[in-house]
């Protein structure tokens, strides 16, 4: 049964992109939780981040050690250093040679100056986990949710395997880079979620990202998430009434209420416009999820509400 669902359902690897402060991490956590609720063994990954997931999920601090925090949920914060260490341990036969390389100032300098190297090892580690099998020969992690670095770097991160392959072409590294690039480019295996806010700058950046991803073909867009939308309250009739009262000579005490009403209408209209900008460019096969703004509550509570909406959305989409 579980297997059937896997075939029909989403890809294994989910990359969550978006600029800082749009609720990307909260969404990543909510998505991971949702996947565990559909009985998927799920790995949730932060990419060299200052750990925010532990506050959202209410767990102990999350570091570069992969930990199980729930029966079906594993968490990890990948770092370039730890990823390189693991990679070298895997590839370099002698412990002495490994130490020599890892501790060498030349290697450190090289690592620092070749940014794609750091990203490549991190992506490589994530890919390695995607390929891992358990004792029954099934994927150890049926779903992996990757909370990518904020947009600019996020895109480079997703392109890095392609870049490395194009730059190296021959040898073991090239072969692995190609495999990773193919895994990301395959819509059956990987999908991109772009998270944004109903604000001009955020939507600008999102449209740029969508275009860039479309052009590079490094990964397929799976979903666009518009977060923190206010609830539309006022209809056209209400708008007319407000305008009528605002111009009324009787207006005195409660002008503040009315101004707020007007502001609310302006905000609703502005957000609606930003939603339409995304709607204009999303293709039919990409789902567009709209999430409401939350007032109050801690990060965990916000994530729980998001999770609830996410479930409702997927049911409506008949997954």
């Amino acid at each position: 049964m579980g297997k059937e669902k896997e075939v029909l359902g989403m890809p294994q690897l989910h990359f969550i992109c978006g600029k800082g402060g749009v609720g990307k991490s909260t969404y990543a956590c909510a998505l991971a939780k949702k996947l565990t609720q559909t009985k998927m063994r799920t790995l949730l990954v932060q990419v060299n981040a200052s750990d925010s997931h532990s506050a959202i999920l209410k767990t102990a601090p999350i570091n570069s050690n992969l930990e199980q925090v729930e029966p079906l949920l594993w968490v990890l914060n990948v770092t370039p250093k730890e990823s390189l260490r693991e990679y070298l341990l895997l590839k370099v036969p002698s412990k002495y040679l490994y130490k020599l390389i890892f501790d060498s100032p030349l290697m450190r300098a090289f690592f620092k100056f070749v940014p794609s190297l750091a990203e490549m090892t991190m992506l490589g580690k994530i890919w390695h986990h995607a390929e891992e099998k358990n004792e029954f020969g099934q994927p150890r992690y049926q779903r992996i949710v990757v909370d990518c670095p904020a947009t600019g770097h996020g895109l480079r991160f997703l392109n890095v395997a392609k870049t490395v392959y194009a730059g190296v072409k021959k040898g073991g590294i090239a072969k692995e880079a190609l495999q990773i690039a193919q895994t990301l480019a395959d819509p059956k295996r990987s999908g991109l979620h772009v998270v944004t806010l109903p604000e001009e700058m955020a939507v600008n950046e999102t449209l740029q990202l969508m275009k860039a991803v479309h052009q590079s073909k490094a990964i397929s867009l799976y979903r666009v998430v518009m977060n923190a939308l206010i609830k539309p309250i006022f209809d056209e009739a209400a708008k007319e009434i407000i305008e009528q009262i605002v111009t009324s000579p009787l207006l005195s005490d409660f002008d503040r209420l009315l101004t707020c009403g007007q502001k609310r209408i302006a905000q609703e209209e502005a957000e609606h416009f930003q939603v339409s900008r995304i709607q204009n460019v999303v293709a039919d096969n990409i789902n567009f999820l709209q999430l409401p703004l939350h007032v109050g509550g801690d990060e965990n509570a916000i994530m729980e509400t998001m999770l609830f909406k996410l479930n409702a959305f997927d049911q409506a989409k008949d997954f």
Binding site: F234, D235, A237, A238, I241, G261
Partner: peptide, 11 residues
Amino acid sequence: RDQFLTSMSTM
């Protein structure tokens, strides 16, 4: 009018 009052109080 009623709809407007409801909207206002929701807000």
